[in-house]
Amino acid sequence: MESPMRESRRAFCFMPTSAPRGCKHHGCKQLVQAGQRYCDEHRTAHAWADRRESASARGYGWRWQQTRKRILRRDCGLCLVCAAAGRVTAATEVDHVVPKEEGGGDDDDNLQSICGPCHTAKTGREAARGRGRAKV
């Protein structure tokens, strides 16, 4: 016969490994289990995130990481967009001045150090411009 203490410990062995988290869809309050990012309602809307190619497959492998470090060093780790507006902000990303989709390349003259908020704003403007172009 087992002691009551051992039986009570066994009852706690079936606890979940982690608490449910909120769905990552903006504004959704549904809880999802560990290992999932979206609830059933939003999973299909965000399925592209699970199918996205690796950074290396998208052209941002080892060579890009070396270029990124060199550009951040060249620009002293400062956001050039903020510097042009008279602000001093640490750069965390490297951006193509002329986007690759518009014919820009990976040469150093077409790359700039940029902070996250400036990069998000610039990418948004470029996406809006891209949506306005007719697909040929």
Rank of each mutant, 00 (worst) to 15 (best):
P99L: 00
C76R: 11
R131M: 07
S18Y: 04
P117Q: 07
C115M: 06
R52P: 04
R6F: 14
T17Q: 14
I114N: 01
T17V: 14
A11E: 15
E102I: 00
K69P: 04
L78W: 04
V98L: 10
C13L: 15
G59V: 05
A34W: 10
G61E: 03
Y38V: 03
M15T: 15
A45D: 13
G124L: 02
D109W: 06
P4R: 10
A34E: 14
V32E: 00
D106C: 00
S54W: 08
K135V: 14
F12A: 14
P117T: 07
K69Q: 15
R10I: 15
G130H: 06
D109F: 03
A121Y: 08
G59Y: 03
D95V: 03
K122R: 13
P4L: 13
A84Y: 00
S54Y: 05
G59I: 05
L72V: 10
D50R: 09
S113M: 05
Y60C: 03
G27I: 00
T67Q: 10
R21I: 11
D108F: 11
S56E: 11
R6W: 12
K24D: 14
Q65D: 10
G105N: 03
C23R: 01
Q112L: 09
Q33D: 15
A83V: 07
Y38G: 01
S18K: 13
S54Q: 05
D40N: 10
G77R: 06
C79Q: 00
E102D: 13
T67D: 01
S54D: 05
R21D: 07
I71T: 10
V97P: 04
A47G: 09
D75Q: 08
R87Y: 12
A34D: 12
R125Y: 07
Y38S: 01
S18T: 14
P20C: 01
R87A: 14
T92Y: 02
A19E: 12
L111W: 04
H26F: 09
I71H: 01
M5T: 15
A85K: 08
Q66L: 12
C82W: 01
K69D: 14
S18G: 13
R74F: 09
W48P: 02
D40T: 10
K29Q: 07
H46T: 11
P4M: 08
G104D: 00
W64C: 00
R74A: 11
R21G: 09
E2F: 15
R63P: 02
P4W: 12
A134W: 01
R73Q: 15
A128V: 11
D75N: 01
G105T: 04
P20T: 02
F14V: 14
A19L: 15
V88A: 11
G103Y: 06
E7D: 13
Q65M: 10
D75F: 02
D108R: 02
N110G: 08
A57K: 06
P16N: 03
L78D: 08
G116V: 12
T67V: 14
